[in-house]
Amino acid sequence: MRRHDRAGAKRRRDLIAYALGKAARLALTIAVVAVLAFALARVLPGDPALTAAGLDARPADVEAMRRSMGTDRGLATQFAEWALGLARLDLGASLVSKERVSRLIAQRFPLTLELALLASAFAMLVGLPLGEASATRKGGAADGAIAFLSRLALSLPGFWLGILLLLGFAVAIPIFPLFGGKDLRSLVLPALALGASNAAMLTRQTRTAMLDELSSEYVVAARAKGLSRSQAARRHALRNALPPVINLAGLQFGALFGGAVVVEQVFSLPGLGRLALTAVAQRDFPLVQGCVVVFAVIASCASFLADLASAAARPGIGRAAR
């Protein structure tokens, strides 16, 4: 009993150290992203004042707009202002609408988060069982069918799948809205379009990891004890196959926010992706930078949480993952 306690405390210490190390790396990542976001936004040709002014504006008026936006100042000044703001968690104000960037992002964030969570849940609910099924039926007809489906899902671009889903389930069989909703029902088709390729990747990852585990000694031993192949798979192999799958799902979750740009466009959803897209089109620098930083935080946090989850899921991972 005491030995067990000591082992438990050590494991907790390991996990805490592991978490702290990861958190420090997260902060560093965000700092690097902040610099890159600022630089990348300015490397693009284009000028927010000219873009807002249009073709017929006179040069004097454009100059007044630059002064009002503050883009006539030196880059060093602009960067210092932004970095100091960022350090105080202040993302500045949009050049175009003059609204606070944090407010604009906060307005759009919930919808895209819901969309990403739904897409992620869909990918896991489909990917894990299909992966397991195709691993336990390796070489069978089901395995072949699943392989075909996942190839299909991986090769269809998200916007195309989105249009197909709209034409199918909002036009031909109108069970979902074509336009207008922001409720859960109107997120179903976008989540399917967004999550399909992730589901396919998870299916493959689960299958590969399961096959590794199924051929390992402990499964052979478990089967020798009289468990059926599927019992052995569910009780032992699946749990051990989970960490790499969780890691992948975490990485995917961060990437979903990028994929949301296209899907939000197709489904007319007012989410974070379209906010970022418009910001880039208008060269609204603070807003572009704010969106990039938020995307980076989400992606880092998701992979961090996935690391923690997979560390917690496997005994001894605290050491191994460090």
Binding site: I163, L166, L167, A170, V171, P174, L178, F179, G180, Q265, V266, F267, S268, P270, R274
Partner: peptide, 19 residues
């Protein structure tokens, strides 16, 4: 004023009477 960025949605929405 409904902001529609996808061509297919515009066309189908007009046909269905959404717009």
């Amino acid at each position: 004023f409904d902001i529609v960025t996808e061509r297919a949605v515009l066309v189908q929405g007009l046909l269905a009477g959404t717009f």
